[in-house]
Write a protein that binds this DNA or RNA. Structure first.
Lengths: 109, 109
DNA sequence: CGCTCATATCGTAATTTTACGATATTGGCG
DNA sequence: CGCCAATATCGTAAAATTACGATATGAGCG
C-alpha cells in the first residue's frame, strides 16, 4: 500500500514544490553565487515587485531552504545549508531501486 | 549576473515542479515500489478520476521522469531511470558553494 | 465489423498560485 | 518624538493548476 506520504516525504515534496518555481529557483542561484546574504538586492535583480519577492522568500524560508535574519533595519537572507543538505541526501538516496548505483560511484572521482 | 536560467536549470526546475505535487510524488513512489510497470493500477490506488491520473502521468512523462510504452491494449509506465539519474546528479552537484562536501563522502560508506 | 477495455484528450469548474499596490511594522537617525 | 529606509502582510485580480465528466482513439476479440 503506498497510501499517503510520510512526514519526510511531505517535507521533501514541499521543498521540491518551492524549488519548482523558476523565480524561486533563480533566487536560490543568486543567493548561492553571492556568498553573502542579500535581501533588497534580490528585488532589484528580479523584474518583480518588492511584495512579490518577499512572498517568494517566505515560501523558500518555510520550506527550509533559506534562512532570514533581521539585521538592523533590513533582513539578511542566506541559504539554509542544513536544509539543502537534507534535500540532497534525500534525493541521493531516493528511489534506490530505480537507478543503478553507478552514478554514486561516478560522483566520487 | 544571475539573469535567466539556462536550459539545464529550466529542465531541472520543471522536474522539481512535477515532483512538487504530492499526487505525482506518490505516483513515483508507487512506480518505484512496484518494479514492474503499472498503469490502470495507479488509478485504483489513488482517489482520483482516471482522466486526472492520466494528466499527472503526462506531466511526469513530459518532465522526463517516467516513460510510457503502449503494450497491446494498455499503456505501461515505468520510471525513466536515465532522467532520474540526471536529476540526482544535478542535485548532487547543485549549489556546490553552499554545503560542505562531507555529505558526498558519507554517501560512499 | 461491432463491442469492450484501457487511455488520452477536451471542455470546463473549483482551487491554488502568482503578482501587484496599498498599508502595516520595525530599526535607526536627527 | 517624527521621519525614512527596508520589509512584511493584506486584499484582490489575473493566471495557472487540478479535478471531473464526457468524448475520442486504438487494440484486441467474438
Amino acid at each position: 500500500m503506498s497510501g499517503r506520504l510520510n512526514s519526510d516525504q511531505k517535507r521533501l515534496a514541499r521543498m521540491l514544490k518551492a524549488l519548482g518555481n523558476p523565480i524561486r529557483f533563480q533566487i536560490m542561484e543568486h543567493l548561492a553565487s553571492h556568498q553573502t546574504c542579500i535581501t533588497n538586492d534580490i528585488v532589484h535583480v528580479l523584474p518583480l515587485a518588492q511584495s512579490t519577492v518577499s512572498q517568494h522568500l517566505k515560501v523558500l524560508r518555510e520550506a527550509g531552504l533559506i534562512r532570514g535574519e533581521i539585521e538592523g533595519p533590513a533582513t539578511c537572507y542566506c541559504l539554509d545549508s542544513e536544509g539543502i543538505q537534507w534535500l540532497k541526501d534525500q534525493i541521493g538516496s531516493w528511489l534506490p531501486g530505480c537507478c543503478s548505483s553507478e552514478s554514486q560511484l561516478i560522483q566520487l572521482k
